[in-house]
Design a protein around this nucleic acid. Structure first.
Lengths: 109, 109
DNA sequence: TTGACGCGAAACCATTTGGTTTCGTATAAT
DNA sequence: ATTATACGAAACCAAATGGTTTCGCGTCAA
């Protein structure tokens, strides 16, 4: 279970819209870099750097096949985001605000 | 319903760990800036700028009371994050990976 | 074996980010 | 009326970010 030295965390990784598009794209299929970068209005190198950031965050896995590197989505790290978000779940659980008002009244006492 | 010109979006807002801590802190209680900044190892001005970014993203509301500005959490914009995340929900819906393997086998055909 | 292809590394650049200190101003307290 | 408090604005700075072009290297094709 050795932590893979998360130089980039999930929150930071998904902050960029290009990287979110990458995740969506790679959700459908595994793809080599050149094909991937064909979907974006920037150089292959730029896309490659985004892919590296996603890989650092564990959101994407790379597989070398011949001279190409294929990437595919690994959604697992999104669970951390899900857990983080779950904390606020209570806010929109019961008609978005009932519990909120309750908590606020608790804070007064 | 005029969009308040979202200079900062939710994804970017929660990318910073300090801002995530701010959200947690303000979830409990409404607080003035000086009190808030007492919880962080940086200047009041720095915290104030983080609060502005959160406010831009709509994650926090400010209320002027006398000479102080009180902030409180507004979790509503987190729904966008929730919706974005919901797209990947199918991955861990059924034992985390069953569907994933299915999709991958689809890609082969 | 000689190219062409697929890719990352490196160097570079402009802009953004996260922080600081200093200052101005509005409000509250004495 | 004067002083202290609460805060934002502004100017500034170092580092990170998102992008580029150039180069080198491994791999497949002629």
């Amino acid at each position: 279970m050795a932590e893979p030295s998360p130089k980039h965390d999930v929150f930071q990784a998904i902050a960029d819209p290009t990287r979110r598009r990458l995740l969506r794209l790679l959700d459908d299929q595994e793809m080599p870099v050149t094909v991937i970068s064909g979907h974006f209005p920037m150089t292959r190198t730029a896309v490659s750097k985004h892919l590296r950031i996603l890989a650092d965050a564990g959101l994407v896995k790379e597989k070398k096949v011949g001279r190409e590197t294929r990437y595919r989505l690994d959604p697992e790290p999104l669970l951390e985001l899900k857990r983080w978000l779950a904390y606020y779940e209570r806010y929109w659980e019961n008609k978005l605000g009932a519990l909120k008002r309750y908590v606020e009244s608790e804070a007064d006492s």
